[in-house]
Amino acid sequence: MSFSTDTKNELARVIPEKDCCKLAEIAGFLRVTAGFLIAGGGRVRLTMTTDNPAVARHFKGLIRDYFDVDTELDIEKAPAPRKGYSYILTVTDLDDSDSILRETGMLMVKQKMNYISDGIYRDIIRTKCCRKAYMRGIFLGAGTISDPQKGYHLEFVLKSNTLAKDLRHLINTFDDLSVKITRRGDKYIVYMKNFQYIRDTLAIMKAYTKVLELEDVAISKEMRNQATRMTNCDNANMDRTLDASERQRLAIRRIREMDAMGKLTPKLRDLAELRESNPDASLTALGEMMDPPLKKSGVNNRMKRIIEFADKL
């Protein structure tokens, strides 16, 4: 089961406490899943379609609880190229369909003519708790989230540019949240890729288990990245140590070939002979071998003098 499906299954277990939040969540879900069966006389029968059975059960119960309306649940094979099944909720009574559409702000009247609105009905999301519920509803209907092991990406796939802009405005009302809009074919995508934005959005929608999982993944990634940085740093230090050792050995070899070891001071000659017999030792280790022992900085200064001497030969 995908991370996105798990997230929706968790959100489908969240039951809003306030009636206003129940209505807002239903409105968000309807806005992206509603379909209409023409019943004649300009009236329609309302349907809602999802590919998640837990989501279907959730809204069947939520609509019954808020509107006192029972919906029929039908299961159909999902149309190609999708796999699995579609779960279709149908409000069979025309009056009930009309009532639900009007109260959720989808069915409006202009010049005595009914029409289906395109964006988010502002009266539904006046309070912060209702904005949270609306976001949860619209995510359950049209949202997806990537497996955080592969990357951070949360998006809402919408059919209308107006709805996309309204949703962006809604999300941006929350502190430190920001989303972008792009177009994919005939769909409008409201998305975020920032880890903190996605974590906070999941918390706002009350997917608390997924928030913890997301944070666990982020911590694991940071630990792996830190280990990689430390390994790279160690390798770089090792490379620098080996390069320095090679330059020192080449300088000492040149001094030998020029029969100039006797021209070095006793201290420099002792260090050169130590390097010859311990080609892979660090400067610190060479200093500990000397009598008396010498600090790394002292060994480094003497090595520089040996190299300078070799360069002049």
Score class of each variant (00 low, 15 high):
residue 271 L to M: 08
residue 122 R to W: 06
residue 235 N to I: 06
residue 306 I to M: 00
residue 196 Q to H: 09
residue 54 A to S: 15
residue 23 L to M: 08
residue 223 M to T: 03
residue 273 E to R: 15
residue 185 G to W: 07
residue 105 G to K: 04
residue 70 D to I: 03
residue 148 P to K: 08
residue 94 L to H: 11
residue 229 R to I: 08
residue 213 E to H: 12
residue 65 D to E: 15
residue 151 G to N: 06
residue 120 I to R: 09
residue 56 A to M: 07
residue 239 D to Q: 15
residue 162 T to A: 06
residue 177 L to A: 04
residue 130 C to Q: 12
residue 116 I to Q: 08
residue 27 A to W: 11
residue 145 I to H: 04
residue 67 F to E: 00
residue 212 L to R: 12
residue 111 Q to L: 05
residue 121 Y to A: 14
residue 270 D to E: 15
residue 162 T to V: 12
residue 188 Y to M: 03
residue 99 S to I: 05
residue 43 R to C: 01
residue 57 R to L: 14
residue 303 M to A: 01
residue 69 V to S: 07
residue 134 Y to V: 03
residue 78 A to C: 09
residue 296 K to L: 05
residue 132 K to Y: 03
residue 308 E to T: 07
residue 83 K to I: 10
residue 301 N to S: 10
residue 128 K to G: 04
residue 146 S to P: 01
residue 6 D to I: 05
residue 260 A to Y: 06
residue 98 D to M: 11
residue 9 N to F: 03
residue 265 T to Y: 10
residue 174 F to K: 02
residue 231 T to K: 15
residue 62 L to H: 01
residue 161 N to I: 09
residue 29 F to V: 05
residue 43 R to F: 04
residue 38 I to F: 13
residue 27 A to I: 05
residue 253 R to C: 06
residue 110 K to C: 02
residue 193 K to P: 00
residue 240 R to L: 11
residue 310 A to W: 05
residue 219 I to D: 12
residue 196 Q to K: 10
residue 95 D to L: 09
residue 107 L to Y: 06
residue 303 M to F: 07
